[in-house]
Design a binder for these strands. Structure first.
Lengths: 199, 199, 199, 199
DNA sequence: CATGAATGAGGATTCATTCAT
DNA sequence: AATGAATGAATCCTCATTCAT
């Protein structure tokens, strides 16, 4: 049908724009990436970017929403039905796999997450809450079940877990991509176990 | 003497420009920060920026050099004469204190360190080597002395240590600045010890 | 019949587009009014504008033709069979009523009539001639019949009459719409009588 | 002195930009006039426009302020110390001379004054008040002195006087510039006297 | 040593127009 | 008869850089 055809065409275009934008912004940052670059890499005319998004900033915010949405979904799927101890390991694995798959998006997050005073800061903080929320639920379950120490600050620990996972994974992919994922996973697990028992 | 007066005045101006630039770039990123912004915050005329630096990029590179130079100096001072085990702890403490003091610079590093394709990438990688080099020397000494496991990948471990310290400290200062430094230090030490014994 | 249905539908659409365009152009001017705006206010898709008119300029020119055509018709109907003196009064009344009814179109005329260098200037000057022509015929009849002074410059007087009627009426509708039409009519008549006797 | 030199240079540039902008906007309207056009005609680089004005709209608003300021000054100078009857005549003469001298600005006013919904509408209405205010003072003095009928609506009469003067003068300059100013002045005076005695 | 007016290349955004459905 | 996704030229605006003072 006409409507479907049009809808699909438009959705395709948006997807292409997302992909082009993620890569470029990961490499160069938001401001250094031009709308021309994005359109060129997506293979559409510049005007098409504006037909599909209100502005460059809008495109970026939707991108953040989309990317963190996927990560949050992965997190939820990973912990589903697992006992606390295994759930934490599953989250780490899930995060690593996500970052390996969407490396550009992860780089971009790493660059923007601890900035302040950017237009999309509010959006980003909210999205961060969302992703860290899933980790926090898992950690809390661990605390409740006695698998993790009762005095653990759930918020702080979840935030740190997220951040450490992000740097370690990105550092891996950027500087020593030949290391196997399992190796990195092992290091991260060691960190978590340790943190769990001391803080 | 006149020359001295001028030299001092100029050094002052440069310092003011450094400080203004660091803060702004930490908040908004390099591209989003304008030379006008920098001059305004430093309280000088725009032309003065160009009287003191060849270009905006040049200012930024000198900034990186200056900032990482200080950090490297701190690292060296911290480990001086210490046995391996204590030296690692001293590095962590030193990094935390540095970041608490030059928080904006740390945010800026966190944002730029894992980017690719930026003009100053080469400079930054070199500077990173410099700082991580000090950590690596210490870790290697630990391996040699048997305080750290013989199969530890020194390069990887040092890089991770640097990255984890950076992200944990910045996350701390941005999201839970009320936590005492000792608390954060404790968490980082736990991580390091654990990593040391497993990887 | 199908054809009739289509024709009527099309005529409807054109009328809706005219109305939307007149209002918007009166408010903001031709250049500041976008085809998107027009389509939106008319409640049709953008493509529909181009299905019905060759271009934005074409729509505007047809609009001018249509609007001034109506005015000229009103003028002709108003003076039909009247003696010169009453005919001038009838023209004024007619112009006022027209402007009250098509206020947006009048504003638009006021804005465009004394411009130069616009694409449709030629069209507009022609249309202006047409409307002023009717006034001029009436004035000339008055001169011929001795009701108006023999040395009156018919062209100049008619042009001024038209212009003064336009500003006074629009000023009335924009700034003091509560004034009754008769009041405004009275002022205009006073002007005309006077001008008639002096120029 | 340096500061003076700079200040003067800048003021010169602004003046050149004003002159270029007035002419172009009078011919084509605000939206149809590009900043490139303005810069080109003023003989400066495009960036200079933005160094001197916040935006194209800002330039236009300052232009309106400047132009109507001059007119208001002329009005005040014209009526200074004159008895009511002569003062009105002086105002008309003053307005005509102003329009002859700044014809482009007058055309521009005629085009924008009765629009609605433009960004600078508020500014323009205020400026209009300012100019009409001087006329109103004079008219009121005439009413008070008995030179003008007691039941005259001062606001309405002043507004109409201003509008009629504007349209008659512009019509004159656009369509019959060979007519001598005195001729036009005579017509306007006739109008005013008549209006004065009837409304 | 410092200034700030001016520049122009470059980047974000708009919008009339086209065209496949 | 109508639609709306896509286009790209035109436009507004920004900003690093220069230079005369």
């Amino acid at each position: 049908m006409t409507t479907d055809g049009r809808t699909r065409r438009r959705a395709d275009t948006r997807q292409r724009l997302f992909e082009a934008a993620v890569e470029l912004i990961a490499e160069q940052g938001f401001s250094a990436t031009t709308v021309d670059d994005i359109a060129l890499r997506a293979g559409v005319a510049k005007g098409t970017v504006y037909y599909n998004f209100k502005s460059k900033t809008d495109l970026f915010e939707e991108l953040l929403r989309h990317g963190i949405g996927l990560l949050t979904d992965d997190f939820r799927a990973a912990v589903k039905g697992l006992p606390p101890r295994e759930a934490v390991a599953a989250l780490i694995r899930s995060q690593l796999e996500y970052i390996r798959r969407y490396r550009a998006f992860a780089q971009l997050l790493l660059s923007e997450m601890w900035r302040t005073n950017r237009e999309w800061q509010q959006t980003l903080v909210l999205l961060r809450e969302q992703a860290i929320g899933v980790i926090a639920e898992t950690v809390r379950a661990g605390v409740d079940s006695g698998d993790l120490p009762a005095d653990l600050d759930v918020r702080v620990a979840s935030s740190a877990l997220f951040g450490v996972g992000l740097v370690v994974a990105v550092d891996w992919l950027v500087f020593t991509p030949e290391r196997p994922l399992e190796d990195v996973e092992e290091s991260l697990l060691a960190i978590v176990r340790r943190v769990g028992t001391t803080t």
